[in-house]
Amino acid sequence: MTDRSGTTGDLSGFQPRLVGFLCNWCSYTGADLAGTARMKYPANMRIIRVMCSGRVEPVLVLKAFAEGADGVLVSGCHPGDCHYMEGNYKALRRRFLVEALLEQFGIDRRRFRFQWISAAEGDRLAEIVEEMVAEIRLLGPLGRARERLFQADHLSLNPAAGGPSPA
């Protein structure tokens, strides 16, 4: 068991891969604004536009982590501003359960952010991405930690099963 890649050692070259689920009506527009205003923020986040934060089922967050994301952001309109009235409350009701669950799965809580960002808050989005990148750089890559945990068993797993596929 000598392979400790990605868990300790030199992390200076590590670029976290973040996934951001952004609501079309607010946060995504905010991201757009940050872009057109040429605000500088790290390019680590793959943005996925969703119609409402209420559409971000917890399974999507888990899937992102299982497929190698180092951090996930879910962002929607401020309370009272959801285009569909209730969507962001729906997202909020799942939020704390998702957080508790990830903690039990040993995933550091700094890897999952839930944030209200309005269409006018491009600067806020840029700030949050920056913060996440900085924090997660210190935490290290999650995908390789997963790989290492499975490799410890020296098994070749049946690929057809949709079983653990190390990122």
Binding site: L62, G106, I107, A145, L149, P164
Partner: peptide, 18 residues
């Protein structure tokens, strides 16, 4: 499950070897 097991970041970081 998608995650299948705990990632045990804490023990990985503290350098706990199997």
């Amino acid at each position: 499950s998608l995650l299948h097991r705990s990632y045990q970041e804490r023990s990985l970081k503290e350098g706990v070897e199997l």
